[in-house]
Amino acid sequence: MKKINLVIGTGINESGGIATVLSVFENEKFFKNQNIKLIRTHTHDHTFWGAKRFIIFLMALIKLLFCTLFYQVGVVHIHLSSRGSFTRKSVIIRMCKWMSLRTVLHLHGSEFVEFYEKESSLNKQKRIRSVFSNCDRVVVLSQSWKRWVDGIVDDPRKVVVIYNTVSRVKLIKDNVEPRSILFLGRLGKRKGVYDLISACEMIKEKVPDFKLILAGDGDIDAFRKIAKEKRVIDNIEFTGWVSGQDKLDLLARAQIYTLPSYNEGFPMGILEAMSVGMPIVGSRVGGIPEAVESGKEGLLVEAGDISGLASALISLLSNPEMSYELGMQAKKKFDENFSPEVIMPKFEELYSCVINKE
């Protein structure tokens, strides 16, 4: 029988962190090199009142069974976040255990702690612990996440940290727009967008001609209204969701990247910005402090500290030399710690260990 590995997750062309990670795997030829078949379990398409979603999930279960019958499956690599994603993947993990398949659970959800501690009953928490413990390995995105997951699995030795990575891009930042700030992601409270717009009031007092580029979906009209109320609408550009060349153009154009989130895993946007030499202004949550050391690759503030966020952004907007130096340090750290050349071999080693039961 032909040997294959399976990856279970959303479609590569969907939006969101898991889709972005899977697209990197494909771009870096990890799927090809590891003889991987991708089984899609989910779509954001609500066509026919969600019936399409149900059909895609049902087909995923059938494909999993088919692959088990007609191939020699080495590893089933399951990408999981919270809520609906957990519900779907828990069914798949139980199927894998029933069929004696070796499994890697890859945790992405930045809100998983909240899902576990505040939204789940005691019985559901027990089920979550069982699902995690039934896997051969659990991949988390940062040391801070490992400390938490260690407390819900039967054997903390199975929990491993492998950082996210992004594919390298050929980008020449020779036409950077001075005093420009870029945000990439869904516009909402969790990502700190309310705080960011509030900080713009203070920034405008010190740097009147700054520009904030909010590139993402969400309730754009609501944020436009807030920006008008705070009289900073002329300083903010709403682009909507961007990808591909449009995103690269923004990364080439902007001076600073910001992500003042309230919770995160290991943000792909920060890695993309670091890879092209942009300084980061972010919050001390999730894996961000492991990517960015404040004062070295960027500046970090506490989540919700609007004054601190404004001050950090003003510092870099007003000091292009410092901004450039932090950006170069960010690129160096990406190259040495988070590049595909560093990260992808860790997944190859992980697969080998799971297959050989090490």
Score class of each variant (00 low, 15 high):
Gly277Pro: 12
Met278Tyr: 07
Met278Phe: 06
Met278Glu: 14
Pro279Val: 10
Ile280Val: 15
Gly282Ser: 14
Gly282Pro: 07
Ser283Tyr: 05
Arg284Asn: 05
Val285Phe: 01
Val285Cys: 00
Gly286Phe: 00
Gly286Asp: 04
Gly286Arg: 02
Pro289Arg: 08
Pro289Gly: 00
Pro289Gln: 10
Glu290Leu: 01
Glu290Ala: 00
Val292Tyr: 01
Val292Leu: 02
Val292Asp: 05
Glu293Asn: 07
Glu293Thr: 11
Ser294Arg: 05
Ser294Gln: 07
Gly295Val: 08
Lys296Ala: 04
Glu297Leu: 03
Gly298Phe: 02
Leu299Asn: 05
Leu299Ser: 03
Leu299Gly: 01
Val301Ala: 04
Val301Gly: 01
Ala303Met: 04
Ala303Leu: 05
Gly304Arg: 07
Gly304Thr: 08
Asp305Ile: 04
Ile306Met: 05
Ile306Trp: 00
Ser307Ile: 10
Ser307Glu: 14
Gly308Arg: 01
Gly308Thr: 05
Gly308Cys: 03
Gly308Asp: 06
Leu309Ile: 04
Ala310Phe: 02
Ala310His: 02
Ser311Asn: 14
Ala312Cys: 12
Ala312Ile: 08
Ala312Glu: 07
Ile314Asn: 09
Ile314His: 10
Ile314Pro: 11
Ser315Val: 08
Leu316His: 11
Leu316Pro: 12
Leu317Cys: 13
Leu317Met: 14
Leu317Ile: 14
Pro320Val: 12
Pro320Trp: 14
Glu321Lys: 15
Met322Glu: 15
Glu325Thr: 14
Leu326Asn: 12
Leu326Phe: 15
Gly327Ile: 09
Met328Phe: 08
